[in-house]
Simulated scan of single mutants.
Amino acid sequence: MASTPFVDRASWEDAARLMAIYGTNAGFEAAALANRSRDIGNVRHFCRWRQIERLIVSLSRQTTEGSRH
């Protein structure tokens, strides 16, 4: 069972913004931002954008995994 990524409010807002702008390609944009951060040596932002990418994937699923309360 996949777990929901832990993110703060700003990450939720960034995920929503990317989804509004890029639609179904939002996850790819988050991955590109993560790669860009990694390339310049910013590990903190790399990890943050990877979590946002996972969040976008989780939000984009058509089915739920496990119970939601």
Rank of each mutant, 00 (worst) to 15 (best):
G66H: 09
R48Q: 03
A31P: 05
E53H: 12
G66I: 05
T63A: 14
N35F: 08
F28W: 07
R44Q: 15
S58G: 07
A31S: 09
A16D: 09
N25Q: 06
A31D: 13
N35M: 11
S58E: 15
P5L: 00
W49P: 05
L59E: 15
E53Y: 04
A15C: 03
H45E: 15
S3I: 10
S11G: 05
R17Y: 08
A20H: 05
S11F: 00
R36P: 00
W49E: 10
L59D: 10
A32T: 09
R54Q: 15
L33R: 11
I21H: 07
R68V: 12
W12Q: 04
R48H: 11
S37D: 07
S37K: 00
I21N: 02
R9C: 07
S67E: 13
R68G: 08
S60C: 07
R9D: 12
T24D: 14
A20V: 04
Q51R: 10
M1S: 14
S60A: 14
I40P: 01
D39R: 11
E29C: 08
G23K: 05
F6N: 13
T4Y: 13
L59G: 09
G66L: 09
Q51H: 01
R61W: 06
R44L: 13
M19L: 04
Q62W: 00
A16I: 03
R68H: 09
S60L: 00
V43P: 03
T4R: 13
D14C: 06
R48E: 03
A30S: 02
V43F: 06
F46R: 12
H45G: 02
L55W: 05
S11L: 03
G23H: 03
L18M: 00
L55S: 02
E29G: 06
L55C: 05
A34V: 02
A34F: 02
F6H: 08
N42G: 02
R54L: 00
R36K: 15
R54P: 02
